[in-house]
């Protein structure tokens, strides 16, 4: 759930999604679920190469089709991300932290 948790904080931020079929789509992340399926709004893409995207404003992307997601580094709290992954690792190792 770490990445789900992480991407939830990126909702309403601009991201660029690179799909496994090399299409690159930039847009505002509207929602994400535990499979990392995305909903993007106000998308823009290379429409000279992919003209079928000209008329598309928002779309849903199945998480398994995504190769990369480019994000603004300033939106990532790396120290917090490290802590979150440590907590998750501790929990899965049986050394669960009880409180917050």
């Amino acid at each position: 759930m770490l990445f789900f948790s992480f991407f939830k904080t990126l909702v309403d931020q601009e991201i660029t999604v690179e799909l496994k079929n090399d299409v690159e789509i930039k847009g505002t992340l509207k929602s994400i679920d535990q499979y990392l399926n995305l909903k993007l709004d106000n998308i823009s893409a290379n429409t000279t190469k992919y003209p079928h995207l000209i008329a598309v404003r928002n779309l849903f992307i199945r998480g398994s089709n995504i190769r990369y997601i480019h994000i603004n580094p300033s939106l990532v709290d790396t120290n917090l991300l490290q802590d979150a992954s440590r907590r998750e690792a501790m929990a899965s190792a049986g050394d669960k932290i009880g409180g917050k």
């Binding site: 759930m1 770490l2 789900f4 948790s5 992480f6 939830k8 904080t9 679920d33 535990q34 709290d77 917090l80 991300l81 802590d83 979150a84 907590r87 998750e88 929990a91 669960k96 932290i97 409180g99 917050k100």
Partner: peptide
């Protein structure tokens, strides 16, 4: 069904980043 997949009774272990990030920001 969807919600039960998403919500957790243990947000500070499974959703730590998001929870703390929201508090911080």
């Amino acid at each position: 069904v969807q919600l039960s997949q998403i919500v957790t009774d243990d947000p500070y272990n499974e959703d730590f980043y998001c929870q703390v990030y929201r508090v911080l920001n």
